[in-house]
Amino acid sequence: MVRDRDPHPPPLELRHPGPLLGRAQSRLTGITTETLVSHGVDGREPAGLAVPADGAELSQADATARPGVDRTTMVSLTDGPEDHGLVERRPSPYDRRRNVVALTAPGEECLLQAERARRAAEHRFLAPPSEEAATALLPALRTPAAEEDPATGRPSLSAHAG
C-alpha cells in the first residue's frame, strides 16, 4: 500500500519538539523583551522585581531560590532594577550580616505595568492558535518542563515556582 506523502512537509528542524520549543522560546523572549523595554526593564529584570513583590523580607541569598537562579545571576537581576530605583537593598532587621531586597513604590508600579505588558505579549504570541489550543498549551508544557522530585520520583515544578 502506498501512503500519500505531504508534498510540502515542514523542514526537518520543525518536525521535532526540541527545535520547535527552542524557536518558540526564542520568539517569545524577543516579543517579551521588546514589550518590556518600553517599561524601562529588560526581559530578565522583572524576575528581579517579582522576587520581593510579595512583601516578604527575603535576603538576597534566600531570594535566589524563588526564580531558581544562582546567587550571581540574582545579583545581576537585582542590579539593574536597583540602578533605576525600583528595588533597594537594605540591612535585614533580623540579621545585620544580610541584606534584604525590597521593592520601592516606583518598583511596584513598574512591576504592575510590566506584568500587564508581559501578559499582553504572551497573549499575542499565543493568539494564532484557537483559544482552546492556547489554553491547553500551558498544562501540556508543564509535564516535560518539570524536573523529577527525588522524594516522589514524579515531575515537579516547585523548584521553578515563584
Rank of each mutant, 00 (worst) to 15 (best):
M1V: 11
H16K: 11
D62E: 15
P150F: 13
T78R: 00
A145K: 08
L14M: 15
L36D: 03
L20W: 09
Q25F: 10
D149M: 04
C110F: 00
R124N: 09
G30I: 06
H16R: 15
A161Q: 14
E57Q: 11
A145E: 06
L141M: 07
R3Q: 01
Q113E: 01
T78P: 00
P81L: 14
G107T: 00
A140C: 05
L36H: 04
L58M: 02
D54I: 01
E57W: 00
I31K: 08
V87Y: 00
G40F: 05
D6Q: 06
M1L: 06
S158D: 10
P17S: 12
P144N: 06
E122I: 15
C110A: 09
A53C: 14
E13D: 14
R44I: 02
A121Y: 07
A161V: 12
R154K: 08
P106E: 02
L58W: 01
P7F: 01
H123M: 06
E82Q: 11
G162A: 10
G43K: 14
A151N: 11
R124D: 11
Q25E: 10
P17L: 12
S38F: 09
A114H: 02
P129S: 13
P7V: 11
A61K: 10
P11L: 08
D4L: 02
E108F: 05
R89C: 07
D149R: 12
L112G: 00
S156Q: 10
L36E: 02
T73F: 04
A133Q: 13
D149H: 13
P7K: 01
A53F: 10
E122N: 04
L20K: 13
V75K: 00
E147K: 06
V2P: 04
V100H: 01
S76A: 15
G22C: 13
T78D: 01
S26E: 09
V41L: 07
S76M: 11
Q60Y: 02
T152E: 02
V75R: 03
L20N: 08
R90N: 00
P91M: 08
P11I: 06
E57C: 05
D54V: 01
S158L: 14
L49R: 00
E148D: 10
A114K: 01
D62R: 08
G85P: 09
R23L: 15
R23K: 10
A121L: 07
H16L: 15
P128W: 05
